[in-house]
């Protein structure tokens, strides 16, 4: 494992921890899109179908379990927790997210590396992850006022994607036969979606003012 991959995994892990911290200690999910969280839970569920059949390393297995467990517990918190669910801005989170799944599924059926159930589900998870952040970005745009933890959460998620691209570039030059168009194209699209957010995040950081997106 190279340093970019590790940095990517660690920023991904940190993003989840920041979100859990916000939900668990402040008992608030204000500004967080349940739609995006549900999509992430589906992404991990369909990607890690090989959790118990394809062993790679202890590290991989533990990380997979953390991402599965955290994504489902976040959804549970927002939907079911007595206090947390009251802070959920339902009216701002109106994205028809399940409609995003159909094009991803159809695309995965036609464009994949191998036509098996596991492989199609894995490819579906790659496509779905690329656009799963959209409901959250739409919600940010609407609420505009973004608290620190929500801002950091999205920043860390974007950083995770950026590090993964550096990881792919590194692996491309250091490993033989390392060409994965599906993952790369989906990954680059996913990272570009954060571009706008990054711009305003750095502006607010540079000028030391509260993060606010333009209407």
């Amino acid at each position: 494992m190279n340093i970019f991959r590790l940095a990517g995994d660690m920023t991904h892990l940190a993003s989840v921890l920041v979100l859990l911290l916000k939900i668990h200690t402040i008992k608030s999910c204000a500004g967080i899109s349940l739609k995006t969280q549900e999509l992430f839970a589906i992404v991990f569920l369909t990607r890690y179908l090989d959790l118990f059949t394809n062993f790679i390393s202890i590290y991989n297995t533990i990380m997979k379990l953390i991402f599965l467990g955290s994504s489902f517990s976040i959804v549970w918190y927002i939907r079911r927790h007595r206090v947390v669910r009251r802070s959920y801005d339902k009216d701002q989170d109106t994205f028809r997210h399940f409609f995003l799944m159909w094009p991803c599924l159809i695309l995965a059926i036609f464009i994949n590396e191998k036509f098996t159930l596991k492989e199609v589900m894995w490819t579906f998870s790659i496509y779905l992850e690329a656009i799963a952040i959209l409901p959250q970005l739409v919600m940010l745009q609407r609420t505009r006022n973004i608290d620190n933890l929500t801002g950091q959460y999205i920043f860390l998620l974007g950083a995770y994607r950026a590090f993964y691209i550096l990881n792919w570039i590194y692996r491309y030059f250091t490993e033989e036969h390392y060409v994965h168009w599906i993952t790369w194209v989906a990954g680059v699209i996913q990272t570009l979606l954060y571009g706008d957010f990054f711009y305003y995040y750095f502006q607010s950081w540079k000028n030391n003012v509260k993060l606010e997106l333009p209407a």
Binding site: R5, D9, S57, M63, F67, E113, Y164, N167, Y178, H180
Partner: peptide, 10 residues
């Protein structure tokens, strides 16, 4: 095989 290599990523 080649198709399996990315499965070592998360």
């Amino acid at each position: 095989d080649d198709a399996e290599t990315l499965k070592d990523e998360l």
